[in-house]
Design a protein around this nucleic acid. Sequence first.
DNA 1: CCTATTTGAGTTATCGTTTACCCTAGTGGA
DNA 2: TCCACTAGGGTAAACGATAACTCAAATAGG
Lengths: 340, 340
Amino acid sequence: MVEIARRAGVSTTTVSKVLNQRPGVGEKTRARIQRLIEQSDYVQNHAARHLRKGRSGLIDLVLMRLEGGYDLGIMQGVQEVLEQSGYRLVVFATNEDETTERLWLRRILDQSSDGVLLLLPYERVGIADTLLEQGIPFVAIGDRNEPTTAFPTIGSTIWLGGYTATEYLLSLGHRRIGIITGPLHLTTSRARLAGYREALEQAGIAVDPALICEGSYLLGDGIRQTEALLDLPDPPTAIFAGNDAQAAGVYQALYRRHIRIPEEMSVIGFDDVTYSTHMAPPLTTIRQPLEEMGRMAAEMLLRLIAGQTLETHHVELATSLVIRESCGPPRQGPLGRGNS
Amino acid sequence: MVEIARRAGVSTTTVSKVLNQRPGVGEKTRARIQRLIEQSDYVQNHAARHLRKGRSGLIDLVLMRLEGGYDLGIMQGVQEVLEQSGYRLVVFATNEDETTERLWLRRILDQSSDGVLLLLPYERVGIADTLLEQGIPFVAIGDRNEPTTAFPTIGSTIWLGGYTATEYLLSLGHRRIGIITGPLHLTTSRARLAGYREALEQAGIAVDPALICEGSYLLGDGIRQTEALLDLPDPPTAIFAGNDAQAAGVYQALYRRHIRIPEEMSVIGFDDVTYSTHMAPPLTTIRQPLEEMGRMAAEMLLRLIAGQTLETHHVELATSLVIRESCGPPRQGPLGRGNS
DNA sequence: CCTATTTGAGTTATCGTTTACCCTAGTGGA
DNA sequence: TCCACTAGGGTAAACGATAACTCAAATAGG
């Protein structure tokens, strides 16, 4: 920068003014400096600006684990917005480890992050509080256990999703519908279940507790719980999988027992992650607008960083039913050859 | 920091020495300051350190697109290493857009990145050169079009993978093996094909050009090219899918035509991405040690940043055959009902 | 023609740390 | 007893950019 100033015969202040497009520079001078800058391969030093302006141009995204589905969809949305805004995205995975988490928190506190996107399904005491205390802007994505107005959150209409999924299966004629939930200590899991219950009740069907299995949103539980459902004296004709990863597990369990989808068993997922189209047959699922959620969250955070106040603190985006090929009318009679 | 120094009755220099564990401080003083630091919630200002030391603690990972498979596996490995080393990971997706790419390059040049991990399968003139020119340490992951010693690269034994996959199918008794390659302008695609050819030739089987289809490593091509293969007068009994995403496409195409895997058609993938276990049936594939590659790349980069010289500039990790359930002996006779 | 005002550009302090260098008081040896 | 040396600690100058403030010249108005 000094070099440019020297060559233009002005002070660094003037160059700085040009770079930041601030007033106080004459037209010809500005043009001359501008040209000089473009000719040289000068780039502003990030650290110095950061130090002086107090903004790092970095936004941290914290998540549990780098996985293919849910998180990735959101990251894509976030990426998209940040890329345009000039911010860079720092990704950090806690791996559910509290020490790692604290480590990250400590690193974040050194002013090196302008804002944080919290993509943690669980509520760890401390993170939100510390962030709030330190005045670091942040937005939480995904439903929280305790509705709060202390900080902005982005979610989707989970309950409605659960309701819609069940209603759809009912409309196909199913009467015995199994559900594999997520961990029931998470609101998002309970919301799905509540939607399921409501739909059944409205259809005048008694909820059979045997058809409700608790999973953990992981593929493995999809397999295990499907087996449990199949081993029931009166197995369901459809399975609502809680999320798409578990739906993949359901597929596998069914494949093992040679039960065809959707002829012998309907399967519906939740999330609509990228690979749900890739499954055979393509998965019918409840779509959460993941990218859109990521975009919204990023935009809210940017506004927060800019010092603007948010109109709404909690945004809920709509879930929707995506019909593909994994659901059909219920089979007649008991399961075929596979039920051994 | 000034605050700490004041409370300890020393200068900031001394505090700095303690913080950086440098000599020149007495035992009791050190202990006293240490305690004071721990008590307060002081965190070193990142920007200032960065400015002074010239190190940002950031490493950039550039990739084409945030996707579920290959890239994610590598990212996980990278994450793992960086998390321990105290570096933070910045993720940037170019979306194959040259403007976006240049934008990123410009941002990187401001000293805000200590090193770069290049996860681009294509060769864009300029990136590597610019990085080299600017003296920014970087490591390229995945095979390059032109083998180079100018910068370190991490790859895997692709050719051998292609050979092994084909050999395995041959050992099961297959004689007509279709292959859906990646874009043939990429070495990594050509290497798979070369391995395929070699295996066939060694088995004394003539290579039938009709069985070779060019894809783009995307699911859609898996579908399209499978259909082309099935429409052949003499369709193959096994398909080597080039990568796992395309294998998912193959699954779908086969599903559409009611062709069972592996009874009527064997399918083998390449990469062993996370979801290959989730497929029904679980995909037999050639494993690239993605996480390991990510780890290695990150470690090499860290060493580079630390100013150490690398023993080897190009590392190739071994691919291996992962046998699951998508391959079996060839069907007898023509394809069943689906061949319409 | 002179003063008030605007405009363009430079001075200098500052952001929070680190580090090269300097100083002082002990310590040990001759 | 005196000197050289060392250990412990402080001073002040960077690092590269920005911003508040100052100053000189040009312009406008009376």
